[in-house]
Design a protein around this nucleic acid. Structure first.
Lengths: 115, 115
DNA sequence: TTATCATATGATAAACTGTTCATATGTTGA
DNA sequence: TCAACATATGAACAGTTTATCATATGATAA
């Protein structure tokens, strides 16, 4: 870890910014949220569920992916509690389970929409 | 691509959700933004610059990474216009260049802070 | 209870990502 | 002009991620 040695850093600036940083655990949580949304398949899934609940099969069509690939990604989103599911007979319906993520997506949508 | 065949999909629901989806280009842009923030080093850099501008060397200290690693990540953030830089002699100062990203981060911070 | 259907899961291969190391660039002061 | 320094960059390697394939599970209807 060849971090630059003491000569060049402005210790006071660094110290102050250091204090302004969230704790590592919160940084890690933020990374996890962004990571969840940083894959096109997962983002499409969440965008689709923003509209309404859907079964795995329909989600697969909407994402142009195999049922299996979608199921894997749904498991990740489920583990993160971004989506939830309910069974109706053979069919599993998925829907959004995290309003914060909805806000994040809405904000990023606004961002890309006008630029 | 063994997408589920016509039997199981609810064509009407799928059609409507399809129409609600952003265009692929915008989805791709959203993915890029989230991807930029989904690495701990890059997120820490942006969080640090949220406080004030810093030189590469100080950023490296703040991220507990080598100057080189940080420089690589700064290039990515620069390419995405999330940060900008200005030279002062030998030293290169980096700062935030995208207010939307600031809002996204602030929102995700609020999210992780109270949960 | 058995066949079929919708979904889930484990293993694998391919692609991607991030750090490191070596080296290059550009700036300053001697 | 040269040495020293801050930063940048290219190549390579390790670790991670994602889709696929094969198979498993759980539910329904015959």
């Amino acid at each position: 870890m060849d971090v630059c040695d003491v000569r060049c850093i402005d210790e006071e600036k660094v110290r102050k910014t250091q204090q302004s940083l969230p704790c590592n655990e919160n940084i890690s949580r933020m990374v996890d949220i962004f990571k969840a949304l940083s894959d096109p398949t997962r983002l499409k899934i969440v965008l689709a569920l923003l509209n309404r609940e859907h079964c795995v099969c329909d989600i697969a069509v909407l994402c142009s992916q195999s049922d299996s690939a979608v199921s894997h990604q749904l498991r990740i989103l489920r583990t993160m509690k971004i989506v939830k599911n309910r069974r109706q007979g053979k069919i599993m319906y998925y829907s959004i389970n995290d309003d914060h993520v909805v806000s994040l997506i809405q904000m990023s949508l606004d961002h890309v929409a006008h630029c």
